[in-house]
Simulated assay, not measured.
Amino acid sequence: MGLERYRYIVVEGPIGVGKTTLAKKLAEHLGARSLLEDPDAIPFLPKFYRDMQRYALPTQLSFLFQRVEQVESLTQMDLFGGQTVADFMFDKDPLFAEQILSDDEFHLYADIYRHLRVRAPTPDLVIYLQADIETLIARVSTRAREYEAKIADGYLRRLAERYSRFFHDYAEAPVLIVNTDNLNLADNADDFRLLLRSIEGMRGAREYFNKA
């Protein structure tokens, strides 16, 4: 069976790794619906990168509420009537919260997260994109979002490490781990075809794709 067996695909990874670009490209290739985060709709985000300690909680809660709305819309979709590609997984939301919130703020966040009782559908496939910290820094610096220029290298490094730990233990869905350091999935058609073949060839619950 080919890509049609995956009704709900999630592309994940740290800031700058290219998850939104790949999610859009996959959705277009498959004729699928896309479900994308909208960071530009978070009013606190530019302030957060200027003063993380002050704006961490409102930023995190804004993302949480946005993701809740998106997941609720996903549960209302007929996942059997077409494919959906998302650039986020709701279950990873606490990953950011643990990094940026104080202990008291995280306890408040955790209470809100728990009371929302959101149950997102389990993906049929998770594509977890990795890259060296130098690659992430370079990619973030080339993006057009002015506020991202204030992201500290240490923040990106810690975030990438948290992603690595999260997916080391994740076992809810099949995971394809993709090293993107030598891939140009946005503009190189050959690289994109290599990835598609890797997805189509998946047989186990956890596989790796690395272009030497």
Results as ranks from 00 to 15, higher is better:
residue 2 G to T: 14
residue 5 R to D: 04
residue 6 Y to G: 07
residue 6 Y to Q: 09
residue 7 R to N: 09
residue 10 V to P: 01
residue 15 I to H: 02
residue 15 I to E: 01
residue 15 I to P: 02
residue 18 G to P: 06
residue 20 T to A: 00
residue 21 T to K: 00
residue 21 T to L: 00
residue 26 L to D: 03
residue 27 A to L: 05
residue 28 E to T: 08
residue 30 L to E: 07
residue 34 S to G: 06
residue 37 E to A: 00
residue 39 P to R: 06
residue 41 A to V: 00
residue 42 I to N: 08
residue 42 I to P: 00
residue 43 P to E: 06
residue 45 L to F: 01
residue 45 L to Q: 01
residue 47 K to Y: 15
residue 48 F to S: 00
residue 49 Y to Q: 04
residue 50 R to L: 11
residue 52 M to N: 08
residue 57 L to C: 04
residue 59 T to S: 05
residue 61 L to C: 08
residue 63 F to C: 00
residue 63 F to Y: 05
residue 67 R to K: 11
residue 68 V to K: 01
residue 71 V to A: 05
residue 73 S to Q: 05
residue 74 L to C: 05
residue 75 T to W: 02
residue 77 M to G: 01
residue 78 D to P: 03
residue 81 G to Y: 09
residue 83 Q to I: 07
residue 85 V to P: 04
residue 89 M to A: 08
residue 93 D to W: 07
residue 94 P to M: 05
residue 98 E to Q: 15
residue 100 I to T: 13
residue 102 S to E: 13
residue 103 D to A: 14
residue 109 Y to P: 10
residue 110 A to S: 15
residue 111 D to T: 14
residue 112 I to Q: 14
residue 115 H to K: 12
residue 117 R to H: 14
residue 117 R to Q: 14
residue 117 R to S: 15
residue 118 V to Y: 00
residue 119 R to P: 08
residue 123 P to M: 11
residue 124 D to L: 13
residue 125 L to V: 09
residue 126 V to A: 05
residue 130 Q to E: 15
residue 132 D to E: 15
residue 132 D to L: 12
residue 132 D to Y: 13
residue 135 T to E: 13
residue 135 T to S: 13
residue 136 L to R: 09
residue 137 I to C: 08
residue 138 A to N: 11
residue 142 T to M: 10
residue 142 T to E: 12
residue 144 A to S: 06
residue 144 A to H: 03
residue 145 R to Y: 04
residue 147 Y to E: 06
residue 148 E to L: 02
residue 150 K to C: 06
residue 150 K to A: 10
residue 151 I to P: 03
residue 151 I to S: 03
residue 154 G to I: 08
residue 154 G to S: 10
residue 156 L to A: 09
residue 157 R to D: 15
residue 160 A to C: 12
residue 163 Y to M: 07
residue 166 F to V: 02
residue 175 V to G: 07
residue 182 N to F: 12
residue 185 L to H: 11
residue 186 A to Y: 10
residue 192 F to W: 15
residue 198 S to A: 15
residue 199 I to F: 09
residue 201 G to P: 05
residue 204 G to F: 12
residue 207 E to M: 12
residue 208 Y to N: 09
residue 210 N to D: 14
